[in-house]
Design a binder for these strands. Structure first.
Lengths: 354, 354
DNA sequence: CATTTTTTGATAGACGTCTATCATTTTGAG
DNA sequence: CTCAAAATGATAGACGTCTATCAAAAAATG
């Protein structure tokens, strides 16, 4: 009942360990019939290689790097924390993870860091892509050196990386639309605020949003805030003035502080019911706003899950597996005050025990 | 830059490998000052034990068992599939997982299976608890043999098992209440249907539901269906007759087919807007109902995540770690048509390659 | 049949750790 | 200082696999 070893396989196949090993590791120079017998034995015994022992013998360890934009207090902050947590958790399994801060919104800065990684002994690298010729070239150079390249959150051209892990933005937008439609069942007016529709993620969210809006709900023209809090606040204020009957707001991008400011003004004057507010990413201030009921629903892209998924993907690729088609698709989560996950804490402590 | 080994630690501490080992594994018989030097070296080098090598040397493997109720086509079916998937994925890491079917709703049947596991060499066992003296006794017997016992989905007394992994039912109910409140903003009438309020999970969901309902929404008396489809169908039909203005239905338990039957009748007669329907567990027929728009929102308890969590918990316990307080709490997920996760498929194939 | 080529067997040393044993050194008590 | 007790060092064999090497056997070639 114990797990069979390659020795057992060899014995069952009636060959030597060496031959079984040659088959398993495709070293060649084995007669057809022996190959078959070994494979049959593997099949019959249900043998699976003990990967940990194999890695030990090979002296192999997995080195991965994560390039996370330096942008404090945002979604990327959570992401960094998640990477750190995973790094700690997997340290004892021969998985080494490096975290590097890269300047935000700066393709040359990103490219520079990428280029600096070309000669480190890496198995995989994970980055939030900013498309530019230089970045693309750096990625190609890495892949040419057998480094797996995954994009996270933001993608490049799909043929220039090995996988993309990121939110299904269309689904996210549709979810937002669904919530606001439900909340405006007898007709209503809703306001979408995006950062910029030139950003593909925002554009996709907006598209999904419109898809899910039911016919009797009016969607006001989308406002582009360029993620500046003042712009968001102004937009909300002036819209509320023009449409006192506003039933919903969908904040597609960032600049949430402006949103909160404008909303708390409304909350004080109780003359009308405040619109239902849906926004993105359950981070710091958003969490607070949801808790105190300043906003109603948050669509989250689960940074921790994305990191875990990315690592699983890189490990699988390193082990020569292929990823299922939509492995990287992150389904948006919808959180109310009521089903908010606990704020991320540090993982379980462990001493150097047993 | 390579990962330090215990040899390196010993060298840095100026002691022999044997002494370093004695400290690391708490074998005793080491002078205080040596202990300190070794610990300092561990700290300074950032040494972490290579657990895989340690397990290899110890000949240790983790044997876990999952007892899943035999109930085809339900939530537990998904759960079984998830266990199978995890079993495959972790087979190469010295983790062996056995799945056993146990009769549903049968405490003696469960106890019998538990008793039969007393002499197998297990590190942990995971079960959907049905409380009974015999079951409790069997659990105690297992724990006395250093088997970790986790309850899944349904709990026993909290002091008689090592951890409970399960849905936060109160949060689930609140989430449902929130959705129906949102959808009934200008007042409305909602109907809760439970299986039985004697079941703690249903009672908790109902409690949370009432908490989250806003003041201007009327909650009809809860109907207990005992999870029989006919009862559910009858309840829905008669309530719709009595309250043509019904705005929402919350189906707390099972018997969903009756719900679907009654709803599709309503859908045909388009005289009024059908109530918003919230129910539990994204399985088979529920998935279909959500896709075609027969129901609006599904609260899911993520069986796959529960299994993964349970395994992580058992592994952590086996490794002598302690679990953070609410490690087992599963936050309910809310799915609309728009953010439904893909149906569970089989994991990535891998040959006996490299 | 002799010779080359292909296939197989046997085995050693490594990977990082565990466990155990035995010898040696250091320490503390009397 | 003596002697026992405590602490330390050195080392070997194991875990399951990888890689490499050398010799032996089997098969194919002429």
């Amino acid at each position: 009942m114990v797990k069979p070893t390659l020795m057992d396989v060899a014995a069952a196949a009636g060959v030597s360990y060496a031959t079984a090993d040659r088959v398993l590791n495709r070293r060649g120079g084995v007669a057809e019939k022996s190959v078959l017998r070994v494979l049959a034995a593997i099949e019959q015994l249900g043998y699976t290689r003990d990967v940990t022992a194999a890695n030990l013998a090979r002296g192999r360890s997995y080195n991965y790097a994560f390039l996370i934009p330096a942008q404090a207090g945002t979604f990327f902050g959570e992401m960094r924390a998640a990477v750190k947590a995973e790094a700690k958790a997997r340290a004892s399994q021969r998985i080494n993870i490096m975290i590097e801060e890269v300047p935000a919104f700066n393709s040359d800065g990103l490219a520079e860091v990428l280029e600096s990684y070309i000669d480190r002994d890496l198995s995989g690298i994970c980055l939030v892509a900013i498309d530019s010729p230089r970045v693309r070239k750096a990625i190609q150079a890495l892949r040419a050196k057998d480094v797996f390249v995954l994009t996270l959150v933001a993608d490049t051209q799909s043929d220039s990386r090995d996988a993309y892990i990121g939110l299904d933005n269309l689904a996210a937008g549709r979810t937002a639309g669904r919530v606001l439609s439900l909340a405006s069942r007898d007709g209503g007016v809703v306001l979408p605020i995006a950062g910029s529709l030139d950003a593909t993620d925002h554009a996709l969210r907006f598209k999904g949003f419109k898809q899910a809006i039911t016919f009797d709900v009016t969607v006001l023209p989308v406002i582009e805030s360029f993620d500046r809090p003042e712009n968001v606040a102004d937009a909300v204020r002036s819209t509320l003035e023009a449409h006192p009957n506003l039933t919903g707001i969908y904040s597609i991008g960032s600049g949430q502080n402006g949103l909160f400011a404008a909303l708390s003004e409304v909350q004080k004057s109780v003359t009308y019911q405040r619109p239902v507010v849906v926004l993105h990413d359950l981070v710091g201030s958003v969490r607070t706003a949801l808790t105190i009921g300043l906003v109603d629903a948050v669509i989250d892209q689960k940074p921790d899950q994305q990191i875990a998924r990315a690592l699983d993907a890189m490990k699988a690729l390193s082990d020569g597996e292929t990823l299922p088609p939509d492995f990287g698709t992150i389904v948006p989560s919808l959180y109310f005050q009521d089903n908010m996950p606990p704020a991320p804490a540090d993982g379980p402590e462990k001493g150097p025990s047993l």
